[in-house]
């Protein structure tokens, strides 16, 4: 018994429904999220105006007070603040997902014949685009105030790729939190409480050498530090990590890739199962 035998012919003829591939469904959802950004440019304030503002504030307010071996503070700052921007993708993805769950949009998507993972993939890609805009704005601001990429095109591109890879890894954390929490406000509160220590207890804004030894250990093993150190070395912003720094900072590129894989391996299953659980009821 097929569906066509069941329904008496409606006046309108049923169209050909060709259930979309994961790629097409995700692309459609990305399109929708980008229309949101176009309609509400204020959604981009965090990665445009604020990016410029933070670069300038740190460079000129703290810049004079923080001494960095072997380089100017602006050179030291840019890689760190760009990594921080990528880490905040997790918060963006979490807030977007919770909002869609809350408003029933996810239910609407789930009632359609699409791969369910398209909801997450679409959300993740648009958040990465969002954060990448922030990184681009920071790079331009940096170039204007004297930051440079000194090691050639290939290394420069590799650093940006590492940033994206790390962004992709932390997004799973965002999906996990977004699936567990009920309101956008709760997500916002939680994510900012986690993200600020995560991005400050690191080598992002100040050298860890000056921290108390227990804090320095945490900072140097923080995945954020490995990625920051990798970008600094690939862009030629300052010296390699000091000889007594922890192992990850001695091998920052390798560790950036390793941390990204580890974070994905830990948070992706948690995220997917939390999203599934949320979607079963």
């Amino acid at each position: 018994m097929t569906a066509t035998e069941i329904a008496p012919a409606p006046r309108r003829i049923r169209p050909e429904i060709s259930p979309p591939t994961l790629l097409r469904a995700s692309a459609t959802i990305v399109w929708r999220n980008l229309v949101h950004i176009r309609r509400m440019p204020e959604m981009l304030l965090d990665v445009t105006v604020q990016s410029v503002m933070f670069v300038l504030l740190f460079a000129y307010v703290f810049g004079g007070a923080i001494a960095v071996a072997g380089t100017d503070y602006k050179e030291f700052l840019l890689p760190g603040i760009m990594v921080q921007t990528m880490v905040f993708s997790a918060a963006i993805v979490a807030m977007g997902l919770t909002s869609d769950l809350q408003k029933g949009i996810v239910d609407r998507f789930k009632s359609l014949p699409i791969p369910r993972s398209a909801v997450l993939v679409g959300r993740s890609i648009s958040s990465l685009i969002h954060s990448s805009i922030g990184v681009a704005v920071m790079a331009v601001t940096g170039l204007l105030i004297g930051w440079r990429m000194r090691n050639g095109l290939l290394d420069a591109a590799l650093a940006f790729l590492l940033l994206l890879l790390f962004g992709f890894a932390v997004i799973w954390l965002g999906i996990w939190v977004g699936s567990l929490m009920r309101t956008v406000e709760a997500v916002q509160g939680f994510m900012f409480t986690v993200m600020f220590p995560l991005t400050f207890v690191a080598n992002t804004f100040a050298p860890p050498e000056s921290m108390p030894s227990w804090l320095r250990a945490i900072a140097e093993w923080n995945p954020v530090s490995a990625v920051t150190q990798a970008c600094r070395e690939l862009w030629g912003n300052g010296l390699p990590a000091s000889a007594d720094a922890a192992w990850p900072l001695q091998h920052p590129v390798l560790m950036s890739i390793a941390w990204s894989l580890v974070l994905t391996a830990v948070f992706a299953p948690l995220a997917v199962s939390a999203f599934r659980r949320r979607s079963r009821d």
Binding site: E16, I17, P19, P20, A25
Partner: peptide, 10 residues
Amino acid sequence: KLIGGLYGLS
């Protein structure tokens, strides 16, 4: 348009 894209309609 959004839902049409997700159904894979022309």
